[in-house]
Computed example of a mutant assay.
Amino acid sequence: MTDTRAGAGASDAHEVALRPVTAADLDRFEAEFAGPEGPGPYQWYGHTPALRTRQALAERGLLGGDENMLSVTSGGALVGRVEWLRRSWGRADTSSCWEIAIGLFAAHRGRGIGTRAQRELVEYLFAHTRAERVQLCTDADNIAEQRAAEKAGFELEGRIRRAQWRAGAWHDQLIYSVLRTD
């Protein structure tokens, strides 16, 4: 999975690819996202244990379940991760979709990598799952992710009021989606 858009310019000098997560990747994720400055102000929820993620990697490679992860590379270097989680709008067996999330290392933000990685993940999910809908939520103040989502083909659907507890306060979230037919 690589960025094959025509007209990629200097800011797109490196291809963006998704690949299965390795144990070494998890070590790097833990190091990069260990404190509030690592994931940034919109993704720091406090210290959390990594044991469950390591067990999922050992058992199923972080693939093929309701919570999944791939590593994001740019120019062959590890730069972050994308995740997709099963969500439902009614009965899970008939009304589920994927919700995606992304975490890039601080040094690689603001260069279009996140937009391309999210687009790659959507293409992957539509090619390899029966999903009709892929959605994402982001903080109402996270302008960079809102722009990335829109550039990746997502459409704003609305605001979910006081939905996320983070940094000692409730935060509104914006929900975006892309449909297989878009």
Results as ranks from 00 to 15, higher is better:
Gln118Ala: 06
His47Phe: 08
Leu136His: 07
Ala6Leu: 14
Pro49Cys: 11
Ser88Thr: 11
Trp44Ala: 04
Arg60Glu: 05
Phe154Gly: 11
Leu57Ala: 03
Glu120Gly: 09
Glu37Ile: 03
Trp44Phe: 13
Gln55Gly: 04
Glu145Lys: 05
Thr129Val: 04
Ser96Val: 15
Gly112Glu: 03
Ala152Met: 02
Phe154Asp: 08
Leu179Cys: 14
Ala24Thr: 15
Gln55Ser: 12
Asn68Gly: 09
Thr73Met: 00
Cys137Gln: 01
Ala92Thr: 11
Arg19Glu: 06
Thr4Val: 02
Leu179Pro: 01
Met69Arg: 01
Asp25Ala: 05
Arg162Asn: 13
Ala77Trp: 04
His171Met: 04
Gly40Tyr: 12
Arg162Gln: 09
Phe29Gln: 04
Arg5Thr: 09
Gln146Asp: 06
Val82Ser: 01
Ile100Arg: 04
Cys97Ile: 14
Trp98Asn: 10
Arg81Trp: 11
Ser74Asn: 04
Gly153Ala: 04
Gly7Trp: 09
Ala8Trp: 10
Phe105Pro: 03
Val79Trp: 08
Arg60Gly: 03
Arg119Leu: 00
Arg147Lys: 07
Asp182Cys: 14
Leu62Tyr: 03
Thr181Cys: 03
Arg19Cys: 11
Leu51Ala: 13
Glu30Pro: 03
Glu123Phe: 08
Glu30Arg: 14
Arg109Val: 01
Gly90Tyr: 07
Ile143Ala: 12
Leu125Ala: 08
Thr138Glu: 05
Trp165Phe: 15
Arg111Ile: 06
Ala50Met: 12
Ala152Glu: 05
Gly112Pro: 01
His14Gln: 15
Arg166Glu: 12
Glu132His: 13
Arg180Pro: 04
Asp3Val: 14
Tyr124Trp: 12
Glu59Pro: 01
Leu179Lys: 14
Gln43Thr: 13
Leu70Asp: 08
Thr181Pro: 07
Ile100Ser: 10
Ala10Cys: 04
Gly38His: 15
Asp66Val: 12
Ile143Glu: 14
Leu121Pro: 00
Asp25Gly: 00
Gly158Leu: 10
Gln173Gly: 01
Ser96Asn: 13
Leu62Asp: 10
Gln55Pro: 09
Arg166Met: 13
Arg52Glu: 15
Gly114Glu: 00
Gly64Lys: 09
Glu155Val: 15
Leu125Cys: 01
Ala127Ser: 08
Ala13Glu: 08
Leu156Gly: 05
